[in-house]
Amino acid sequence: MSAHLRHAGAAPEAQTHALEEITHASPRLMQVLRAVRDLDLPDWWIVSGAIYNTAWNQLTGRPDMYGVKDIDLFYFDPDTSYEAEDRVIHRVAQAVPGDPPVETRNQARVHLWYERHFGHAYPALGNSAEGIDRFACKTHAVGLRLEADDRLTLYAPYGLDDIFAFRLVPNLALPNRKTHEAKAARQRALWPELDFVRWPEETAFQQESIS
């Protein structure tokens, strides 16, 4: 087995421990986690690329934050006004300067703008985890939060094996085929070790239940 796949197929507990060690070894990711924790935002998570890209970089010997365009921060505030979200965006930008930048989004607002950007409707969410559930690629569906006692809390509704297997797997919860394919094309150019699982050809969209 190639060295970068050394955690593929391991027990979930072992993969969680490996991801925690990888996270602690990333200066930028830990800086962001600590700074956002101090802001005490409601229902917050650092999600997606900053996590799985960090894993791929460390497992393949690439530099920290290689290929990371931005660090996605989810939080959930029932105040769905643009002004309220904008205030949080500015707070985060002041608290966590540097590159890659932190991109902050209130998950309570996503349904208000999603169709305009992506061409199909998006359900109103009840919490930030429901946003993670609906990423176009199951491999990308991962979130981390740093607790007051420095413990990392992980949310990975589809597990971590796809991350450690360097495998991009579509999520059929929403009709996000174009997003899945576009993100995969960019990521495979940066991490050629990745395997790509295509969207099912027999249907453009198949609703999967999300518990």
Rank of each mutant, 00 (worst) to 15 (best):
M1Q: 12
L5E: 07
L5N: 05
R6M: 14
R6S: 13
H7R: 10
A8Q: 09
A11S: 12
A11Q: 13
E13H: 07
E20I: 13
E21G: 09
E21A: 15
A25T: 00
L29F: 11
M30I: 15
L33H: 09
D40N: 08
L41Q: 05
D43V: 03
D43T: 02
W45Y: 05
S48L: 01
G49Y: 04
I51V: 15
A55G: 03
Q58Y: 00
L59F: 10
G67L: 14
D72A: 06
D72E: 11
F74G: 13
Y75I: 07
F76D: 03
E83G: 05
A95C: 08
V96N: 06
G98W: 07
P100R: 08
P101G: 10
N106E: 01
R109P: 04
H111K: 02
E115L: 03
G119F: 09
P123T: 01
G126A: 08
A129I: 15
E130Q: 15
I132L: 06
F135N: 12
C137E: 11
H140S: 10
A141H: 03
L146P: 11
D149F: 03
D149A: 04
A156M: 10
F166V: 14
V169K: 14
L172Y: 11
K178V: 13
A184N: 04
W191S: 01
V197L: 07
P200Y: 08
E201N: 05
S211M: 09
